[in-house]
Write a protein that binds this DNA or RNA. Sequence first.
DNA 1: CGGTATCCACGGCGATACTG
DNA 2: CAGTATCGCCGTGGATACCG
Lengths: 139, 139
Amino acid sequence: MVTKKLGGILSPPDLSSPTGGRGNAFDPDCPTRVVLDRIGDKWTVLVIGALARGPLRFTELRARVGGVAPKVLTQTLRAMERDGLLTRTVFAQVPPRVDYALTELGVSLGGPIAVLTDWAETHVGTILAARDDFVAQEA
Amino acid sequence: MVTKKLGGILSPPDLSSPTGGRGNAFDPDCPTRVVLDRIGDKWTVLVIGALARGPLRFTELRARVGGVAPKVLTQTLRAMERDGLLTRTVFAQVPPRVDYALTELGVSLGGPIAVLTDWAETHVGTILAARDDFVAQEA
DNA sequence: CGGTATCCACGGCGATACTG
DNA sequence: CAGTATCGCCGTGGATACCG
């Protein structure tokens, strides 16, 4: 019974408000919006996956994730650190060494992501097929 | 035990491949990437929420979602229709009437989204607090 | 009512080069 | 090793106006 279980953003929020009140995704402070903005980007989910087994250094992380420019990886890591998803540990030595590790919060985010991933793997075939049909129908 | 449960994109995919093989998010055909690209946008999740209780017409949908330009709503709906998440039914009458309704696939996507929403509502406080700390630390 | 057409601002992301 | 600096593309999405 999915529709009854849909909490938060999925339930008609507050019909007395013209905008639907809180819980609306165009509200930058909406919890779901915050999370979606974080995992919706190109690299965050991959970083979480790469760090799931344990801490990694910058270059290891880069190699594990694959194909990401250093600037962009830095941006991603800073944002995740800022949001408490991972910790950045600098070792005072030469050559420099910086470890990135998931926090409890970061690890716990893996749960919902795994659910999403499971759904994706199960249903992506249907989606892709629908796309093909749609394109074919235009012709 | 979350880390053990992390399937798909979250597990180190294929270490024999330089890019990590399948299951990588920078691969446009990666299931998780496909889904993330869909729900990561600004309006799709809200549309799913709005349609969870039943079909709506274009204008009703627009009012329910709130603050979305017609062009953008059309774009969103077309993309969702294309991917098989909803159906678009045109009634041949004047004035025109067009109904939008979730498909089974669209409804089922509500499950993972609800999980994400639950996580978001539980942990957004921690995230926001981390942000404040981070900003405060810069000063 | 249910859209299109047009224009445009913004931010994410990438390539390349350089540095403490 | 672990980044920063700079440049620039381009896709999303918003404002406004118009249409069958």
